[in-house]
C-alpha cells in the first residue's frame, strides 16, 4: 500500500460561473460551453481533465487545463446570452492540494467539521467548509484521493497544516469496507 502524501498540484485553470444554475437553459448552455454536465448539490462532475463543481445554488467552478482557460469565459458568456451571469478566469486566486493514500480522510477530519466516513463522503462529493480556521473546499476524486482548494493567500498555512496533520494518522478509524 502506498504512503500518505500531501502535495501541491500543478497550476490548474479555474473559471468561476455565477448564474441562475437551476434553470434548464443554464444547464444546457454550460454543457455546450464547457463540455461538463452541471453537477447536483454538493457534487463535482469529473470529466477527464475538466471538472465542474457545485459551489452554491447560483455558483459553479470550472476546472480545466491552464492552456484552455482563455477562451472559456467568452464561450460561457455567449452560451448564456441575455441571462444575467458572470464567468471569470480566477485561476490565480486559489491553490489546490492533493491528499492521497491511507489516512487521507483522517487528515481532513482533524480540521474540518464534516462527516468523512466512507459511506458519508464518496468520490464526486464536494464540500465547502473550513480547515482549521480558513475557508477551503475539498472533493474526492475517482481514485479515492482528496483534492482541496483554498485561497492563495492562505496556501502556506494550509500546506503546513496538512503536512503537520499527516505526520501521524490512524487510517484504521476510517477503514474502507
Amino acid at each position: 500500500m502506498s504512503d500518505l502524501t500531501v502535495s501541491r498540484v500543478a497550476p490548474r485553470g479555474m473559471v468561476t460561473i455565477r448564474a441562475d444554475l437551476g434553470g434548464p437553459g443554464a444547464q444546457a448552455a454550460l454543457l455546450a460551453a464547457t463540455g461538463c454536465v452541471m453537477p447536483g448539490q454538493r457534487r463535482i462532475a469529473l470529466q477527464g481533465r475538466r471538472a465542474l463543481a457545485w459551489m452554491a445554488p447560483d455558483e459553479a467552478m470550472l476546472f480545466l487545463p491552464p492552456e484552455e482557460v482563455a477562451e472559456v469565459p467568452g464561450r460561457i458568456a455567449a452560451a448564456l446570452g441575455a441571462a444575467p451571469h458572470l464567468a471569470v478566469d480566477v485561476s490565480d486566486a486559489r491553490v489546490i492540494f492533493r491528499i492521497a493514500g491511507p489516512g487521507a480522510r483522517m487528515v481532513l477530519a482533524k480540521g474540518a467539521p464534516v462527516d468523512l466516513a466512507p459511506q458519508a463522503f464518496r468520490p464526486g462529493d464536494f464540500r465547502r467548509t473550513r480547515l482549521g480556521q480558513v475557508a477551503v473546499a475539498f472533493w474526492m476524486t475517482g481514485d479515492g484521493a482528496f483534492e482541496l482548494m483554498c485561497f492563495r493567500s492562505v496556501a502556506g498555512f494550509v500546506e503546513d497544516w496538512l503536512l503537520n496533520a499527516a505526520r501521524s494518522v490512524d487510517p484504521g478509524l476510517f477503514a474502507e469496507g
Partner: peptide, 11 residues
C-alpha cells in the same frame, strides 16, 4: 437550506 447539509455552528 441552500446546501442541504447539516453542519456545526462553527461553519
Amino acid at each position: 437550506p441552500y446546501c442541504g447539509v447539516e453542519a456545526e455552528e462553527t461553519e
